[in-house]
Computed example of a mutant assay.
Amino acid sequence: MSPRREKLTSPQTRIALARGNRPAQHLLPIPGPVDTEAARRLFRRQRRTAVRTVALLSLLLFGMSGAFALWPQLTVLRVSGVPVSWALLVVAVYPLLFLLALWHVRSAERAEEDAAARGEGAAGKGPTEP
């Protein structure tokens, strides 16, 4: 005869099960009506920003690859034992990637702020109180 099986649960599961089904008080109220055309304009503007960001990212990454292919001496040339191509990747590319990401987020936020300032839809306004 096999030994009796035991059900193992974590302490968090036991606590959650002990609470039972309570109504969710953390849910936000339903927002007011949304101007669909304004939301579409905001979406198009943010999509243009995203396409521009991807184009700049591609230019940066493929441009560096192209530069290394055009000038193979960057891989041979060394500074303190480190190939110049690697130093360029660390010193130039990563900060540029960070700045590109920062620019993209700021542009998307600015689009939402502009839409909210014009009163277009629920962009940037948050939920309305009941």
Rank of each mutant, 00 (worst) to 15 (best):
M1Y: 10
R4N: 12
R5G: 04
L8V: 04
P11G: 05
P11I: 07
Q12V: 06
Q12M: 12
T13C: 01
A16I: 01
R19A: 11
N21I: 13
N21L: 12
L27D: 02
L28N: 03
P29T: 00
I30V: 09
I30Q: 09
V34T: 15
D35I: 07
E37G: 05
A38H: 09
R41V: 11
R41M: 10
F43M: 14
R47Y: 15
R48M: 11
R48W: 04
V51R: 11
R52G: 01
R52A: 08
S58C: 13
S58E: 05
L59H: 09
L61A: 10
F62N: 14
S65N: 15
S65K: 14
S65V: 11
A67F: 09
F68G: 09
A69R: 07
A69E: 00
L70V: 06
L70I: 04
W71K: 03
W71C: 03
T75Y: 07
V76M: 08
G81C: 08
G81F: 11
V84R: 05
A87C: 01
V90P: 01
V91Q: 06
L96S: 02
L99R: 13
A101D: 04
A101V: 09
H104Q: 03
R106V: 06
S107C: 11
A108P: 05
A108S: 10
A108V: 11
E109C: 15
R110W: 10
E112P: 14
E112S: 15
A115S: 07
A116G: 12
A116W: 07
R118M: 03
G119L: 01
E120D: 05
A122T: 00
A122K: 03
A123M: 03
G124K: 04
G126F: 00
P127M: 02
T128I: 01
E129S: 04
E129C: 07
E129V: 12
P130A: 04
